[in-house]
Design a protein around this nucleic acid. Structure first.
Lengths: 309, 309
DNA sequence: GAGCGGCGATACCTGTTGTGTATGGGGAGG
DNA sequence: CCTCCCCATACACAACAGGTATCGCCGCTC
């Protein structure tokens, strides 16, 4: 049985007349008679009553037609759904990211993507950069935002572009002596208890601070370690010490704290957007489009990475 | 798009390999490649990723396959449902009947039919015989049980067989003087207040009683009229008088009442089973089969009526 | 009642197309 | 570098969907 038989049966039921149904189908009457006869032979049941006043479905015909309608609806829906999925309008996007990326630029990008593609199911997984990388390579994620480029076996197959440049800034309570300053010097940092990050991703950051402030700086030795940037800011607000973190903390202003630049300006590892370029899903393509439109410079980098790929 | 494309796409997704899928489908590999290519061109989306390790559906392919599976299920279900409907295993049977037919023989027949054809939706409409007849002719009923053969315009196109022979019996309270008797005579009836039927169908019955008992019998003039047999029995139980009704009342025994034959035995109009013979629905055919098996004599009459039709 | 017209079924032919065979191209593994 | 595996392409054929002509049947009308 083919879809043609269903279409013909439905047309016949609708018009109640072989000749008119055939004309509506754009074929001649004899082929329609034959196809209906074939269908009745295959189903083993008479589906239509041919009377002088018209052609009417039998009880078996009614049962058949109800299913036929749904079958054809499913078939057209199949094409529609495939098209939507291919254009990235539906589907699933699994995103791994480090928590601090939620300060910036993820809120903008995710908000925009959610509005542009309301039918894409976003699966958001906060995880350390190293786990994001291995999950990407294992095919468990579609895209990831990591601190620095992903490393490890298979990372060479990933496409990575910087999505945010950060430098080191300080955060202090409004009551803190540094609160009025535009910037703080390294010497000033060395004289105060510090609050620094201690997540899975942070050994490199901490090492960078050691080099910056001096290997055995008492401020670092007596530092408070926090698992995420919000804790750093919170502790700074309590006056525990001088918080140090990425400049994207500026996206999380909070009453009672002030941010200061650190002099000299010190670069931190970039936020990196990574994905596997083979088998790129349409939803990922749509996401990259959104990123492209949201951050022109990232878009340009993307185009460079994808053109020679 | 034809059902073939769906079957091929599903087979390809299942086997993940053009060659093996083609073998499973009983065709060669190139035709499968061509059909899949045609399908992808028609949907406008690449549905499968051809990799060295196998063929896998894309996101669009997954969306398509989900719909394709349902479409094919509907198609096979269409054939199954049509067959079931054609055999009268499903569908609808609209039965019109007079209330007293519920005493006998409808309970047996309906009970058996309900067990044998649990998926046929029974629509039961209690109505007067004349309304049953016109509803049958108008195509609003499939079958009817009436008191006497249906009359009126179009009734000649109906097939009718007697489904029960009844004669007049009396019903009295256990305390009634006649309660101990096997039978009562017409004279005895004339000496007591009577309770007789007064439904839409009953003028003929009442007329029969007049002839039987005498035109101006005081028992009839002072009779109590009841709309249905259960009321007749109930009034008799209260000692209002001697109830008169069809012998199928014997199927409704009740504490506190006794039934007596009436001497001489007096025939009443038969219960008649009628249906339209043209466009006989499978459910009706199944119902007639049940009747045939339940009442052999009715079956024989049916066969006689249908053979020469 | 005979002729007529409408409708579906049948017979036969034609053109499309689904399928088979043979072959090409491209990547992975030895 | 060769070989194998796999999918795509090329081409021929056969099956079948569809077109044309016609038949059989029934109801209608003159």
């Amino acid at each position: 049985m083919e879809a043609r038989h269903l279409r013909y049966a439905l047309a016949l039921a609708e018009h109640g007349h072989f000749g008119r149904a055939a004309r509506a189908l754009g074929i001649a009457q004899p082929p329609l008679s034959k196809q209906i006869a074939d269908l009745e032979r295959e189903t083993g049941a008479r589906l239509f009553d041919r009377t002088r006043r018209g052609v009417f479905p039998t009880a078996a015909g009614e049962a058949f037609l109800a299913r036929a309608r749904r079958a054809l609806q499913e078939m057209t829906a199949a094409t529609v759904d495939a098209g939507r999925a291919a254009r990235g309008e539906t589907g699933r996007l699994r995103l791994g990211f480090i928590a601090s990326a939620l300060l910036a630029p993820l809120p903008d990008v995710l908000g925009r993507f959610g509005r542009e593609r309301p039918d894409v199911r976003l699966e958001l997984h906060e995880m350390a950069s190293s786990r994001s990388a291995s999950a990407l390579i294992a095919g468990e994620l579609d895209v990831a935002v990591t601190l620095g480029p992903p490393r490890g076996a298979g990372a060479e197959h990933l496409v990575s572009v910087p999505i945010g440049h950060d430098h080191l800034i300080a955060v202090v309570s409004s009551a803190h002596p540094y609160a009025g300053q535009e910037s703080v010097t390294l010497d000033q940092l060395r004289r105060r208890p510090l609050i620094v990050a201690a997540g899975e991703d942070e050994p490199a950051v901490t090492a960078g601070l050691r080099t910056l402030l001096g290997e055995d700086s008492p401020a670092l030795i007596g530092a408070t370690f926090a698992r995420d940037v919000h804790t750093i800011i919170g502790l700074a607000a309590c006056g525990v010490g001088v918080g140090l973190g990425p400049s994207r903390m500026l996206s999380a202003p909070r009453p009672g704290v002030r941010f200061c630049e650190v002099t000299p300006r010190t670069a931190l590892p970039d936020l990196i957007l990574s994905f596997t370029d083979e088998d790129r899903s349409p939803a990922l393509g749509a996401f990259l489009d959104t990123v492209r439109r949201n951050c022109p410079d990232v878009g340009a980098a993307l185009d460079r990475r994808l053109s020679h790929a």
